[in-house]
Amino acid sequence: MLLIDKYAYFNRLKHIHPVEKMTFALFLLLFALTVKDTIVSLITFAVMSAFIILGAKIPLRYYIKLLLLPGFFLLSGILTIVISFASIKTTTPHVLWSVEFGYWKLFITENNIKIATKLILVVLSSISCLYFLTLTTPVNAILQVLRKLKVPQLLIEIIEITYRFIFVFLETALHIYQAQNSRLGYMTMKKWLHSLGLLISSLFINVFKRAKELTIAMDSRGYTEDIMYIDDNYQYSAVNWIIITIIIASIVAVYLLFGGTL
């Protein structure tokens, strides 16, 4: 079991109805992406992080590691925004830093810093909303809500089977890696590349084999088009809805009063 999946099943907010958590997370996610306001993004990130760390009791160190995962992609995008490239004759106002290379120059302006800061906060707020949902709500509970929303059954089954095969991939890859490593398959760079190629090819072969076995198992149990589920029993809470409404209304009010000031 992945650690992120383990926390989804064993956290202090696991008993809360998934509709409440999905409504809360998705509304703040869409609102932050729509307004793209610095204050809203900062508050959303702080609120979601507080619920994850203090409410669900997810370890702070693990949460920081999760935030670092998209850091490379965010950094690569930020660098292209912060650093500008232009002719040396081009006049640029409010330059904070510049360096010249012949007839060209690299420079950073105040506007670039503002745009990059806003982008970082919007991304962090969006990621925190998604992490709140994935760290506090099991996948089967999310699919249960999607079924009640009349999402096409085929799409739900594809999501569930894809999620299942994530674990199949990881388990198979781990077993192959351990077998190769025990035979000193990663001692040198040449052996490392050779073993990695064998691992990838063996991984796909084994996964396709497991997929065929899964199809045979489902057909032998009378599978036609629908998979029958036993839904978990959740109870709505008026207190939770009041808290969600207050938080959402407060963030919207902050945006209406102070939006665009930063």
Rank of each mutant, 00 (worst) to 15 (best):
Asp5Val: 00
Lys6Val: 15
Phe10His: 12
Arg12Ala: 10
Arg12Gln: 13
Arg12Ile: 01
Leu13Met: 12
His15Phe: 12
His17Pro: 07
Phe24Ile: 01
Leu28Asp: 10
Leu28Phe: 05
Ala32Pro: 03
Ala32Asp: 13
Thr38Pro: 04
Ala46Asn: 09
Phe51Leu: 14
Leu54Phe: 12
Ile58Gln: 06
Leu66Asn: 08
Leu68Gly: 04
Leu68Asn: 03
Gly71Arg: 01
Leu74Ile: 15
Ser76Met: 14
Gly77Ser: 06
Ile78Glu: 15
Ile81Asp: 04
Lys89Glu: 14
Lys89Val: 14
Thr90Arg: 15
Thr90Gly: 04
Phe101Met: 06
Leu106His: 08
Phe107Gln: 03
Phe107Cys: 03
Phe107Thr: 04
Ile108Val: 15
Ile113Lys: 10
Lys114Asp: 00
Ala116Ser: 14
Leu121Gln: 05
Leu124Arg: 03
Leu124Gly: 04
Ser125Asp: 11
Ser125Glu: 08
Cys129His: 13
Leu130Gly: 14
Tyr131Val: 02
Phe132Cys: 03
Leu133Asn: 03
Ala141Leu: 07
Leu143Cys: 09
Lys148Ala: 07
Lys148Leu: 09
Pro152Arg: 02
Leu155Arg: 05
Ile156Trp: 03
Glu157Thr: 05
Ile161Arg: 01
Ile166Pro: 00
Ile166Met: 03
Val168Gln: 07
Phe169Ile: 08
Phe169Trp: 08
Leu170Asp: 09
Glu171Lys: 08
Ala179Ile: 01
Ala179Asp: 15
Gln180Tyr: 11
Asn181Gly: 06
Arg183Val: 02
Arg183Tyr: 06
Tyr186Met: 02
Thr188Glu: 14
Thr188Gly: 10
Trp192Ser: 13
Ser195Phe: 02
Gly197Pro: 00
Leu198Cys: 05
Ser201Gly: 07
Ile205Ala: 09
Asn206Gly: 13
Lys212Ser: 10
Lys212Leu: 07
Ala217Ser: 15
Asp219Asn: 11
Arg221Ile: 06
Tyr223Thr: 00
Thr224Ile: 09
Glu225Ser: 11
Asp226Asn: 08
Trp241Val: 01
Ile242Ser: 12
Ile243Val: 15
Ile244Val: 09
Ile247Arg: 06
Ala249Glu: 08
Ser250Trp: 07
Ile251Tyr: 07
Val254Gly: 05
Phe258Arg: 01
Gly259Trp: 07
Gly260Tyr: 04
